[in-house]
Each structure stands twice: as structure tokens, then as C-alpha cells.
Write a protein that binds this DNA or RNA. Structure first.
Length: 585
RNA sequence: GGGCCCGUAGCUCAGCUGGAUAGAGCAAGGGAUUUCUAAUCCCUGGGUCGCAGGUUCGAAUCCUGCCGGGCCCA
């Protein structure tokens, strides 16, 4: 609808003033006296043409009036042009939605180009917390939108499996495992004959166990105290290790046992993360391992490339990357004094890898605590000669959880944060997904469990889903009582929908198409819940004021057609948000 | 100390590439049910858009300063 009017205006500008590429706004006025759409084009033109905007508006209006799709074209006060579309235009829209379904709303914005959305990418050293969950939803919804609008989307999770934190996970598991073993030895789990008796002059097996436990405690105790992961989940992992391997871990040399447990923990955590995300409706096309960048020498190659370009230098025993040449506020270390690579080094390599994989665009969804990181990664990209806007970073702020009006911070499992799983089990996927995108993602979100759960009847998620269930209910009843199946394609007379309410509803659907497109372009996904509520509000009003199942069969069919179109739009929005469309509630 | 984000109704938030009388949900008060699902609808009240300047035909929107909150870096 907006697109249509814009095109028509551009044609007029070209013919009448020989102007092209003029940027102006076409939008839905807040007050319906101002028509279906209004444009500020005359204001813009007055600057170009150096003429009175009101006169220009009048000239343009005269041209537009020739088009039968417009019922009226008026010029208002300063110089707005208010356009009203004809009924036939709207009836055409309704027919279009019924025949094309989702495709009515589609527009090929991506032109099949490849885009990568990287999101979550949480360290696999603990369960996902709420912040990760928000990032997960944001990334997923963006992906859904881009996919629908013609992009070839790759959803990717970057696994930080190379750094010291994985070793620390191993140490933490080992520490908890030692605690577990110690208590078992004390409690007598190792008190059978074979453990208690030994040939004369030799220590018993039990004593040996005890000595080994003490030895390992001494060796890793400090490290655990300083940097260990303390969440309950580490104890669970240790228990799992014990269930599988009993005391065998003690028989390994220290480093070997740490490596073994690191790998074990990594694998377990990743599986858990995968499960949590799947229950959240989120799956990835690619799980990209940081470690693989080292194994394939990608980091090395990338740094060599930079070195050849003269962008690396040594200072204080470390290797630095001249990111300041590309807009960063200071240079960054890529190889530390001790010869190890920084995270930044592998991040550069990762993004170089993304570029070489041929993505036309890359969107990184990051926690907002990484915002200081954006300039240096962008700098790296520029150093590769890649256009800066090739990468977009969506920053996602924290989620604060409230219960009984108080902030909930602690979780037994994670130690610090409430886990996504805990919230998922308590309030369910749909509610979380909906609420997590109701606010712009770069500002902190407050999530009130009581509102999300206990007052579910007043919850916008249910409000919106209820509309879908109601429509489905009507279709069921129409089939039951009248034997008419509205699910299959049927003929109808749109002109029977002649009331103001009905026409407004169709208009709204036409507008919705424009708004969804604009959301996909700007990625302002926080507007999606609003959009759903707006549409549903109109539907509920309609439901309460008009009966669909009426004796006049033609009228009934026309109204069913309208409901079907509404349901199509609703399902599409639900699909974007990733919530279910219930048949009954 | 430097940087980023935020401040709009009692609460949670839209609106911010300048545009017509600043919106929604919740909460508060009143009303609608022989119905295709009342998890609904209708009505009412509620605002110095943090404060002060500036830019211009016009500012919640752009600029500057200040106040308050969050985060990152040193």
C-alpha cells in the first residue's frame, strides 16, 4: 500500500518535475480524518523546487486524482497530501491474501543473498542464563524475518572452546569430583575387602585413594578457589563423571585428567545448551568451533595476512594490531608476551573466515557488555578491505527478573544468574519469546514472573493467541453446524463487507504488509508484539460486534474470508516471533 | 577520568532518519454474558515527554550543558 503510493508519486515527480530518487515519507496518519495514507512529499519538494509547499501539494494531488485506486486525494493545512484508497482496492487486497496466503506479505528484499546471523554463542562452561535467552530470541526472530524476506540465512553458534575457561571447567569438575570421592571414601563406599586389605608393608587401596585425592586437592585447590566455576551444575557434572568412571579419573596423571574432564564438560554443556535452545524453538545450521580455527591454522594465516599488510608490530614483547588506523581508539594485542593468542586474534580470524565463506552480510548478536568490542572488530574488518556495513552488531542488554516485586538474582544451578531452563519450565516458551522482544534489545529488560505467569489472562501473549483460537473455533462451528468448510478455498463476495469496521480491518491488513517489511528492513523486532496486539484488538472488537455465523450464507462466507485473512496475518507474525498458534484455548 | 545506552501516564514500554490533538498493555473506576470460546468488548480518569538552553515555519524526536540510572574501559 505504501509502496504503491510511493511508486505512483515517484512517477508523477518524474513526469512533472523531472525529479527522481527524492526521499519522502508515506505514513499512516494517526487520525483517520487525514485519510489512509499521508505524505510529506510537498515539504521535501519545496526545498528542491524553492516553491511554496502548499501549491506543490495541490499540483500533485491533481495528478493522483486521475488514478482509480484512490478514492480521494486532499491537501491539508501546511502541505500534507492525504490519500484515501478506494473500496475496490481493499477488496482486491482481501482476495489477494486469501489466494496467496503468506506470499501476499512477502517481498524479496534479500534477493537470495546469503546472510549469517550469529547468536547466543555463550561459553559452554555453564548453563544458559536469561541474557543468553534474550540474545537467542533476538537472533532467531531476526533470522525468521530475513528468511521470509528473501535472504538465504545461516544461523550460527560460535563455540568458545579454545580458551583457558574450558580448562577451568575441567579443573572445576575435577575439584567437585574430588569432593565427591572424599565423601564417598569417608562414608565407606570403598570399604570392601579388596580396598581394606593389602599385603603387609603396602598401603591399602583405600589409603591410596585417599592419598591421591589429597594430592590433587593440593595441586588444583588454589586455581579452583581463584577462578573456578561454582554453580551447582558443576557438581552435577562431577556426579555424572563418577557414575560413568568411578575412581578411574584418579588414576590418570593430573593434566590428563583435567583435559579429559574439560572435554567431558564441554560436550555435556553443549548438549545441554542445545537441548535448552531446542525447547525454546531454536536450532542452528552451524556450530562453529573456535578451536577449529587453531587446528586449521586459520588464526595464524589471518595474522600473517595482516603482517604482510604491515598492520602488526611488536612492543613490550607482545604483538599488536594497528586497529587505530581503522577507527579504534587504541591498538590491540593479538599475541601476548607468553606467545598465546588473545581472544581478539581468534575473533579476527573468525570474521575473516565468515567473509571468505561468502556471506553478503553478517549480523552478530552480542551481549551489551561486549559493546566496547565493536570498534576493534569493525576495525579488523576494514583492515581486510571489507565494507564496514558488511557487519552489523546487535547489542542485547540484560534481563532483570522480578518476582513479588523484587529482583531475583540467584539460581541454584548457575550460582549467579537464573537459568533459561528454570524460567522455561516455569512460564513456558511462548511467554518468554514474546516478552523478550517487547522492548528494544539494546536497553535492559525487566521481566516480571508474576505478570508473565499468574496473571496469564491479562497477558498480551494469551490475548493475542486467544484471537487465533477464536477464529479456529468459528471455523470448527461453521463446519459442525452449517457443514461449510472454510479451510479450503471458496468463492466470496468482498463487497458484502461494507461496514466501517470491516473496511478498517482490511485496511489494517494492507498496512500490516508495509509495517512488516519496514520491520524486516530496520530489524526493529520489538515492534512485532505491538503489531500483533494492534491487529488482534481490532479482531476482538469485530468479534464482539458482528456475528460471522449468520443465515445469509453469502454474508457468512465474506466474513469467513475476512477472518481467514486475519488468521493468515496472525500466523505470520506468530511465525516471526516463534510462538504457537493454538487451535483452542 | 574516557566511551556507549537509557530517562515518555502509578507500572512495563512504543513513538526518536523533525510534522497535524504524544500512544498501547497492565493497574484504578463503571458497564456489557439466553453468544460463533467473557483468556472478550465498551466507557472514564490519568502526562511540565528528567531539567535548562539552542537550531526553525514546527522539537518527545536534532545539538549543547546539567541531573539521575545501567553497562564497558582505564
Amino acid at each position: 500500500m505504501q509502496g504503491y503510493l510511493k511508486e505512483e508519486l515517484q512517477k508523477v515527480l518524474k513526469e512533472k518535475y523531472n525529479l527522481s530518487g527524492v526521499e519522502f515519507k508515506v505514513e499512516r496518519p494517526k487520525r483517520k480524518e487525514f485519510g489512509d495514507l499521508a505524505t510529506n512529499v510537498a515539504f521535501i519538494l519545496s526545498k528542491h523546487l524553492k516553491r511554496n509547499p502548499f501549491e506543490i501539494a495541490q499540483e500533485l494531488a491533481e495528478e493522483l486524482k486521475k488514478n482509480p485506486s484512490f478514492e480521494s486525494v486532499e491537501v491539508a493545512k501546511p502541505a500534507f497530501i492525504n490519500v484515501r484508497f478506494s473500496k475496490d482496492y481493499y477488496y482486491g487486497v482481501l482476495k489477494d491474501i486469501l489466494t496467496k496466503g503468506f506470499d501476499y506479505f512477502r517481498e524479496n528484499l534479500g534477493l537470495g543473498r546469503r546472510v549469517q546471523v550469529e547468536y547466543v554463542s555463550a561459553n559452554p562452561t555453564g548453563p544458559l542464563h536469561l541474557g543468553h535467552g534474550r540474545g537467542a530470541v533476538v537472533g532467531d526472530v531476526i533470522s525468521n524475518l530475513l528468511e521470509f524476506y528473501g535472504w538465504d540465512v545461516t544461523r550460527e553458534y560460535y563455540i568458545n572452546d579454545a580458551g583457558n575457561q574450558i580448562r577451568m571447567l575441567g579443573i572445576s569438575i575435577l575439584y567437585r569430583y574430588l569432593e565427591l570421592m572424599l565423601s564417598l571414601v569417608y562414608e565407606g563406599a570403598y570399604s570392601s575387602q579388596s580396598y581394606l586389605f593389602a599385603p603387609p608393608g603396602e598401603a591399602t587401596k583405600k589409603d591410596k585413594l585417599y592419598a591421591r585425592i589429597s594430592e590433587l586437592f593440593r595441586e588444583i585447590g588454589d586455581e579452583f578457589e581463584q577462578n573456578g566455576y561454582r554453580g551447582e551444575y558443576v557438581k552435577e557434572l562431577a556426579q555424572k563423571v563418577y557414575d560413568l568412571y568411578r575412581e578411574q579419573i584418579l588414576e590418570l596423571p593430573k593434566e590428563e585428567s583435567i583435559n579429559f574432564l574439560s572435554e567431558f564438560g564441554l560436550k555435556e554443556m553443549l548438549e545441554e545448551i542445545k537441548r535448552d535452545l531446542e525447547d525454546f524453538g531454536i536450532t542452528f545450521d552451524v556450530w562453529f568451533s573456535e578451536k577449529s580455527l587453531y587446528q586449521t591454522r586459520y588464526v595464524e594465516k589471518t595474522l600473517n595476512y595482516l603482517r604482510e599488510k604491515g598492520l602488526l608490530y611488536e612492543k613490550d614483547g607482545a604483538v599488536w594490531f594497528k586497529t587505530t588506523e581503522f577507527g579504534d581508539d587504541k591498538d590491540r594485542v593479538v599475541i601476548k608476551k607468553d606467545g598465546s593468542y588473545t581472544y581478539f586474534a581468534s575473533d579476527i580470524a573468525y570474521h575473516y573466515n565468515k567473509y571468505l565463506r561468502g556471506f553478503h552480510k553478517v549480523i552478530d548478536v552480542w551481549g551489551a557488555d561486549h559493546h566496547g568490542y565493536v570498534p576493534r572488530v569493525k576495525a579488523a574488518i576494514k583492515a581486510f578491505g571489507v565494507p564496514e556495513n558488511w557487519l552489523d552488531v546487535e547489542l542485547v542488554q540484560l534481563v532483570k527478573l522480578f518476582r513479588d516485586g523484587k529482583e531475583v538474582k540467584m539460581s541454584k544451578r548457575a550460582g549467579n544468574f537464573v537459568t533459561l531452563r528454570e524460567l522455561l519450565d516455569e512460564v513456558g516458551k511462548d511467554v518468554i519469546r514474546f516478552w523478550f522482544i517487547t522492548k528494544r534489545s539494546d536497553t535492559p529488560l525487566e521481566f516480571d514472573i508474576d505478570k508473565a505467569k499468574e496473571e496469564s489472562s491479562e497477558n498480551p501473549v494469551f490475548y493475542v493467541q486467544y484471537a487465533h483460537a477464536r477464529i479456529s473455533g468459528i471455523f470448527r462451528e461453521v463446519l459442525n453446524r452449517k457443514g461449510f468448510d472454510a479451510e479450503v478455498e471458496f468463492e466470496f463476495k468482498p463487497e458484502l463487507l461494507s461496514s466501517e469496521t470491516e473496511l478498517e480491518l482490511i485496511k489494517h491488513l494492507a498496512t500490516l504488509r508495509d509495517e512488516l517489511i519496514s520491520i524486516a528492513q530496520s530489524r526493529e523486532i520489538h515492534l512485532l508484539p505491538n503489531l500483533a496486539v494492534e491487529l488482534v484488538k481490532r479482531f476482538h472488537y469485530y468479534y464482539n460486534h458482528y456475528r460471522v455465523m449468520v443465515d445469509d450464507e453469502e454474508l457468512m462466507k465474506a466474513r469467513l474470508a475476512l477472518l481467514k485473512a486475519i488468521r493468515t496475518a496472525l500466523r505470520l507474525i506468530f511465525h516471526f516471533i516463534g510462538i504457537s498458534a493454538p487451535e483452542r484455548m
